[in-house]
Amino acid sequence: MKVVAQYLMVLTLSPLLLGVINRVKAFFGGRKGIPLFQLYRDLFKLLHKTPVYSRSTTWLFRAGPIVGLGAVLCALAIVPFSGRHSFLAFDGDLILMVYLLGLARFATVLAALDTGSSFEDMGASREVQFAVFAEPAFFLALAALARGTGQLSLSAMFAGLTPAVWQSAASVLALVTAALFIVFLAENSRVPVDDPNTHLELTMIHEVMALDHSGPDLAFILYGAALKLWALGALISCAVLPRHSASWFVDSGRFILMMFVLAAAVGVLESIIARLRFLKVPYLLFTAFSFSVLALMFQAAR
């Protein structure tokens, strides 16, 4: 029952994360900003619109958003919630989760290629390029956690993270968290990898791939992006928030609060740093990779 409640909470709360990010950025920019619940309204409005399809597209273009959303929904069933078990938790589930996100990416990229627009293809090209550097970093960060906790499922790994572990292996966990954070920014197309607020097609990654989508398809994409933000953010929140209390309500509340703190941190980060040049993005992801490798080495030497 609690597992289902957790999942439903994720489904309802994730669009709010983007609202928080936007509000924080507006605050730093001295603006009033869009309402906190704007994404909900957008989604509702888009679901009731009739889509427009390019004549060069096929069924694949319509299937892209569906597969993208479906894969992220399944991946979320694996992601732990405040260090508690999710309902698709098994040994090795982290591999399935990463590959499901890969499936979502593959579907989005193919849908973008289906339009035959250079700009969308450009975005797709960047998306696959950055994934090549982000995924090894992500896997190795999880491997460091697996070696540290001796667990092979995401839920068990994060459940095994106690304050005592943090105290004894702070450096390893800090490195892992840093690596996860960079991957989180890159995979969700946030600054400094991609700027969601950019208005020039040439400089976009994620946004440009969704240029031709409209109506419910666009709603699926936007919602999928919000869910993915939660999926990867939840890992960071679980990492920095070792479980203390026995009460599910307290834990859940604290966890959700942490998610919003994370969103606020992203907002602050986006307000104070600029987007990197595309040529430099692989360097950033390489840095995440080296964090993961160092974490593993430290963990191995313990």
Partner: peptide, 13 residues
């Protein structure tokens, strides 16, 4: 010890 380890990590970074 933990602080020292963190310092070592910082040196490597």
């Amino acid at each position: 010890t933990t602080t020292a380890e963190l310092i070592i990590v910082a040196i490597i970074l």
